[in-house]
Amino acid sequence: MLTHDEEMQVIEQILAGDKDAFEILVEDQKKVVFTLALRMLGNEEDAYDISQEAFLKAYTNLPGFRGDCKFSSWLYKLTTNLCLDFIRKRNRHKTVPLVYEDEDGDSEYLEIPDETFSPETQTEQKQLRESVRSGLDQLPEQQREILVLREIGGLRYDEISQQLNIEEGTVKSRIFRARKKLCEILLKDGNISSELPSKQMERGGR
């Protein structure tokens, strides 16, 4: 990954007319951008298109990039924006009413049955990965966005705060709620630990 200074150097080069230099930024960031889009959108095809679009948009908007944050942070936010737009359009087509996320919809207390999240074999690891990915789809958009910026983009709280234009305290609590909610979804769906007694599952799922 390029440092902020290295990014800025490349950007200078591009703005001076060297289009090919943009390839350096694409190569540096494509994995993160693609993964961000994939976790936001849930399928590879859309993720591919949106991440292509994200890079093109970054290119055309590059003159407006002020350099007061890392290029990568800016690019990630641009990517999640495109994803959110895309999701909204997709929802529109499905004529599903737009659900505004209810952040307080999660339960007071998260209770996790023992061993649930301690996968031991590789198969279990893989299974957990799959479950987490499908669980993400059920997370309210806002929570999904902040969680991918943190977990995939690796942004610090202050960087997220800057990108989303919210207080750092809000970043902290929103990430926490997103994690909690995701765990709850995984427990409720039962695709996390099927061998657990159902009573315990219910308790955990609340």
Binding site: V32, R39, F117, P119, L128, R129, V132, L147, E151, L186
Partner: peptide, 9 residues
């Protein structure tokens, strides 16, 4: 666990 599962590129 969730963090690791999610963060993998």
């Amino acid at each position: 666990a969730v963090s690791l599962a999610m963060g993998e590129l």
